[in-house]
Design a protein around this nucleic acid. Sequence first.
RNA 1: GCUGGCAUGGCGGAAUAGGCAGACGCAAGGGACUUAAAAUCCCUCGGUGGCAACACCGUGCCGGUUCAAGUCCGGCUGCCAGCACCA
Length: 803
Amino acid sequence: MAIPYNHHEVESKWQGIWDQEKAFATSTDYSKPKFYALVEFPYPSGQGLHVGHPRPYTALDIVARKRRMQGYNVLYPMGWDAFGLPTENYAIKNHIHPRIVTKNNVARFKDQLHSLGYSFDWDREINTTDPEYYKWTQWIFLKLFKAGLAYKTEMPINWCTSCKVGLANEEVVNGVCERCGSEVVRKVKSQWMLKITEYADKLLEGLDGVDYIEKVKVSQKNWIGKSTGAEVDFQLAGKEDKLRVYTTRPDTLFGATYMVISPEHPLIDKYQAEIKNYADVIAYREMAARKSDFERTELAKDKTGVQIDGLSAINPVNGKEIPIWISDYVLMSYGTGAIMAVPAHDERDWDFAKKFGLPIIEVVAGSPVPVQEQVFTDVQTGILVNSEFLNGLSVADAKKKIIEFLEEKGIGTSKTNFKLRDWVFSRQRYWGEPIPIVKCEKCGFVPLDESELPLELPEVESYMPTDNGESPLAAMTDWVNTTCPCCGGPAKRETDTMPQWAGSSWYFLRYTDPTNKDALASKEALKYWLPVDWYNGGMEHTTLHLLYSRFWHRFLYDQGVVPTPEPYQKRTSHGMILGSNGEKMSKSRGNVVNPDDIVQDYGADTLRTYEMFIGAFDLSAAWSEDGVKGCRRFLERVWKLQDILVDGDAYSADLETKMHQVIKKVSLDFETLKYNTAIAAMMGLINEFYKKNSITKAEYKTFLILLNPVAPHITEELWQAVGFEGRVYQQTWPNYDEAKTVESTVEIAVQINGKVKTTIMIAKDEAQADAIAKAKEALGDKLTGNIVKEIYVPGRLVNIVAK
RNA sequence: GCUGGCAUGGCGGAAUAGGCAGACGCAAGGGACUUAAAAUCCCUCGGUGGCAACACCGUGCCGGUUCAAGUCCGGCUGCCAGCACCA
């Protein structure tokens, strides 16, 4: 009898051996086929590892381990995305330097990850807060600046009242701060911006060539929000100026019965003298400005507005004079900040027209309900009416024709717009990468010379952000006052720092060559390793990190720094692990599970197996301690296989088919995120061994190799315990023979009129006539009536249709 | 509202390409072992009826295609995620 399974001993023993043997070191032999597996590096928070972390890490660890056994040179790295607000807030509260906090948290995280037996190459560990790392983050920023893609501008930003920091649009969720949930208000500040909008088209097109799960592609497309339409100029009645609008429905131009400009539109100030109800208009503008984002989005349904008395516009195609309104349903930040309203064929315009009694003119026919009663927005079936030269055309044809017309007359032009906004890149915080720019009275914004990098964070007395919106660095006059790299005169350093997304926008490049002093990575390393073959991460990063890093990568490609236009060939996403009550784990709900406890009580192999068996990888799953026990039970049964081991260099005859089937299933399922069914197949196989009460050495070897990526410690121990040579991680992944995955004799269903009546055993390739004859014989006197049809699907069934 | 996805036992979930629905695991019930419990092992486990052989029903709802539908088509309902006054 085997000694009892002691996971403490087994796991610490093998973790030590792997470290000592450098079992998972990445080779720098670039002649071998490569595989780059990547998981999102964690933010080392004070709470330590969450049970959610091991789900993606184990999934790609499985793929990485399997690929190594298949002969690939695998890069599976890990590092720390360590700049960020929680660390800084903790530092403020406890008066400890963020560097110390980070160091402690990283040490804890690393211990925890180590205890889970991941095959990360720890020699390539990186940390975004290491000056040798952020030197290159700053270097990329300088490249962006020199390329005209980084600029500083006064603009209203999203200001979190609690964090006292500006946020990117992507960080504002339902009008509140993504991180702390506090109210977000608009505040005008001078901010560094990155022109991600210049890359909107490239980021959109790039999606065509990569293998991302559909929902990620869809989310990115929505976020980029490309729309095509036209800009059209409306002459202001009796004035010099024209009012330019953007529309996606230029075909409905004849139906424009009024116009709307956004409350911030400059036209209002310009014509202050002519606007008879100027006071009312200004009052409306101020009311709109006071609305928070929350009010503007959540309470959006009810339309409000004021007609501008004294200004009107001329519809350029029919010469009709139409009124101009001001309303906050038109945004200054999109298009031209002004629209032509076609209430018959736009839902918002329809609501507005109904509320204020404005005329509704049908220009696209085909609505089952009169447009006075219901808006008609269908662009597939509608036919143009009341539109002179467009009458009778489809919407698509009318769009083409009207744009030709507008361009010919010089009153309009086709135009593409994006929802994507430029990226607010400034944070008024200490614990981030300093922006390597100085401001000189004479020369303006001047980049530091590359030789000055890294520009290190100075030591400060206080990390407290200030209420006036200045970074804590602003108080460091010694550091702030410097000389201009350009003219040598007095200059001031930029005191804002970069957002957390900076360091994570290029970290996968650094892993390929993590200690390079001369470049962010060598050309050879980048050429060999890129693109990342498989990147897994959370859905919450789809419009943040994933989009930002694609932007930076594409920029670096255009600069000739990296060899591929896209960073990631394949992107998958894991579901969340919820508490046992099906709710998100949180301290306040009291449903948090600590992975350390599971490793202590059941072992890392059990935790890994459980998290892979819990359900479909991309769906959220509720934690179940009973489920953990079930997986532990499975590993106990694996452990006891050594008691029924018998000699035999081949698979036993009655299990040969099963063995080949399971090798095939596990091999395929590991590649397609179906870890739960791969494990189920191995459970099924082990049940077969126990039914027979024996397992041959050949079967044992194959089984341990198949299970090894999931449960690496126990399989190594069992391999060694029975005296096999070498290590499991050094073995070759087993092959299966397709021909041997099918039994020569199979049980097939025998149906009458599609209902199963009995089953028979026949050869897998039995001839049709013989199969049907055998089926009829098995049915005997159950078969009554006239046979209308006989269907035989080899290996599946016989169906007799009788009346 | 728009976009994408999902809906299967008491529970988590299987089911290639239209071909025996419920693999695998959990929970539950029964039994063996034990002074006893735990652990372990064996059996049962979608519903209804039946001593049983077996019959009928059953994959959110309504309809369709087919010899055959969880799977395909049309129409709903509910849930999840993302976006949301983007003209």
